[in-house]
Structures are given as C-alpha cells and as structure tokens.
Simulated scan of single mutants.
Amino acid sequence: MAEEIQVKKEDELTLSLPRERGLASSNMYLFQEFWCPSIVMKDVNIFQKQFQAKDSDIIVASFPKSGTTWLKAIAFAIVNRQCFSIDNHPLLTSNPHQLVPFITFMHPADSHFPTTEPRLFGTHIPFPSLSKSIIESNCKIIYICRNPFDTFISAWNYFNKIKQHSLSVLTMEEAFEMYCNGIIEFGPWWSHMLGYWKESIVRPNKILILKYEDLKENVNLYVKRVAEFLDFPFTQEEESNGVIESIIRLCSFEKMKDLEVNKSGISCKIFENKHFFRKAEIGDWVNYFSPSMTEKLSKIMEEKLSGSGLSFEIMHP
C-alpha cells in the first residue's frame, strides 16, 4: 500500500512538471532545473533516494555526446590495469558502457551491479541532482566536456538514430533552436557544465574537469593526470614499459569502433553500441553550421559562460 501511494505521488509530481519533446524522447520533464527524459524519471528518483556512495567510488560524468564512451574506457583501463593483460582485456569484448554502467540504470539488486572496488559508474545527471551520498562522500568524479558546437552536431546525429520510432525526425534547424534554448536531454548544456565546473574549483580533489579537445590533443598527458587524480598513478617502470601508450591504443576510437562488440552489441538493454562511434573529430561542426547559427551559438556561449573561467577555443571557418 505504501508503495502504491509513493508511485501515485511520483506520478502526480511528474504530471505537474513542465514538459517538452526531446531530441530522442517524446517527453522530457523539467525536473530539478534540468530536462529529464521520461524513461529515466523513475530511475533518477530511486537513485537520489537509495544510492549509497563509497569513498572509493569513481563517477565518470558528462553531458551527452561529450566523449563519455572514451573516458569510461580510459578510466576502466587505468584502474584495472593490474588485473588484465592488454591482449585479453574486457574492453576487447565489452562496450565501455557495460563495464562502467550508467548509475541510473543500476540498482543494488541488479546482477550487473559493480561489487569489486573501486566501483566505476557513469552519469549524465547534473551535479546538483546527484545523490546526497555522492556529493557528501569522498568519491571521485571525472567530468568531460566538449565545445558546444561539436556537441550539438554529435547529439543531433546520435539522437536521430536512437529516437523513438513514433517520433518525427527533427531537422537540424529545429533541433538547433531547442539546443539554444537548453531543451535537450539532461540540458541546459551550459548549466550542466557550469555545475561541475564550479564545484571542481571548490573541491579540486573531488572533481577533475577534462575538455574533450585537450584529451585529443595530448592524450598521454591527460591519461597520466586522470591516473594521478584517481590515486592510481603510473610508476616510472610502467611509463618506461609503454603501459600508458598501450592503454591509449586500447581505448582509441579506431580500435574500439573496429571491435565486433561495438559493431553489433547492445548496452544499457536498449542502445546499439555502433551508434556510440561516429567520427570523434574536432571541428566537424563547420560542415553543418550556417553563419547565422555560428553567430547565435557563439553569443549564447559568451553570455552563459562569461565570468566562469570555463571557455572553449572555437576555430571559426
């Protein structure tokens, strides 16, 4: 009976929230100041109330289409490098989203719930809406963000592939207007990035911010930085033996895209792995944006990120 009352309360709450169509979902609700897809509303509620973080936990956080898959692979490979050889590695037969599951799809009763420590989880949930135990514990959060131009193009391409069949395909112009207004799964994108960014300034030992572009430009440096931040630093011997380079090769876009599991497998019960690997390029947005779109998004970035210290170098054509 108590459970039925709780479900009724949650349904009433959902119905009272502002609602919009998403890029991939028919309904998103403005929940705790972010656009939550209806299919994860219940899971987010359960996660916030029940998830108990451990100080040894590692959370890979991101706004969708910012380099999540890549960072999950890197984090998993760093933390588990003593357990597996490169030639017989779980990343060769499992998608990174299976090895570092999304926290909202995981409940302790789930057979795939990580039990060995450190536990690795992923999330797209904004920082203020994480469970209280994550915010208050000493668990580590690595957050990856990407320039909003490329993020939009990647999101538009991806969400059109995974959208509900009953939904009409959004034109790029329609999707762009929604994106500029912050109406996108787990958006607004600016408040998502700023939430983690501001907290990383206050608690640099808890949150490490990475930019996708920096990781692409100097992957060796940032793999070392992630390892140090997670308290799994590479030894001098490991560096001399090329361990860092072997992890970089294992987790590379080219290597992962070519694996059989990432051509035909499924993660999170519903997502086809092949859709997680498109181009992984910096600056692909120039092939899509009109001058007016470029001007509009540049102004929004300037307005929303001004004074925060967070900025992105955008190479204009």
Rank of each mutant, 00 (worst) to 15 (best):
M293D: 04
L120G: 04
T93V: 10
T116V: 13
V286T: 15
F276D: 00
E10I: 12
F47H: 11
F121T: 03
P108I: 05
F63C: 10
A155G: 08
D110Y: 03
F186Q: 01
L92E: 14
L297P: 03
N241T: 12
W156Q: 13
L120A: 05
D57Q: 09
K42W: 09
Q48L: 10
C251R: 01
P90A: 00
V60Y: 06
L221D: 14
E281G: 04
D11G: 11
I125M: 10
A61H: 03
E254G: 06
K216F: 13
R225F: 14
Q98S: 13
K161F: 04
Y212L: 11
A155I: 03
K211F: 08
G122D: 15
S166H: 06
S137P: 13
G67P: 02
L23T: 00
I134R: 11
L215C: 09
F76R: 08
F102P: 02
V219D: 10
E254L: 14
S85E: 07
F47G: 05
F289H: 09
V100G: 06
T235L: 08
P204W: 07
K65D: 03
S166P: 00
I58T: 14
S306G: 14
E245P: 02
Y143M: 13
F113G: 01
I142K: 11
M256S: 09
M193Q: 06
F229L: 04
R119S: 12
A75I: 15
L99C: 01
L15Y: 11
G265D: 04
E136D: 15
S62Y: 01
S246M: 12
I46D: 14
Y179P: 01
G283N: 08
K211A: 07
L170K: 15
Y288R: 12
I135P: 08
D214M: 15
Y179G: 02
S94P: 05
F312K: 07
L194M: 12
D11K: 12
V202H: 13
E272C: 03
V60I: 12
L15H: 13
S131R: 07
K132S: 13
G187S: 05
T115A: 06
M293C: 09
I135Q: 11
S290V: 07
P188Q: 02
S168I: 04
T116M: 13
I103K: 00
N27E: 13
E136L: 14
R119A: 11
G242F: 12
L221Y: 15
G242I: 10
S56D: 12
F159R: 08
A61E: 03
T115H: 12
L91F: 05
Q50W: 07
E10A: 14
K299P: 02
E239Y: 04
E303P: 00
S66N: 09
D87W: 00
A280R: 04
F31N: 09
L17Y: 15
F76S: 06
K132C: 11
V169C: 10
P188V: 02
T93M: 02
K8S: 14
K132N: 11
N27L: 12
P101A: 01
N262W: 00
V243A: 07
V169Y: 07
P148N: 05
E245C: 02
Y29A: 01
G195F: 00
N27A: 11
P96W: 00
E12R: 13
F229M: 02
R278G: 07
M301F: 04
L30P: 09
R19P: 07
E4W: 03
V79I: 15
K161E: 05
N160I: 00
K296D: 05
F186M: 11
S38W: 01
I86Y: 03
T93G: 05
N220I: 09
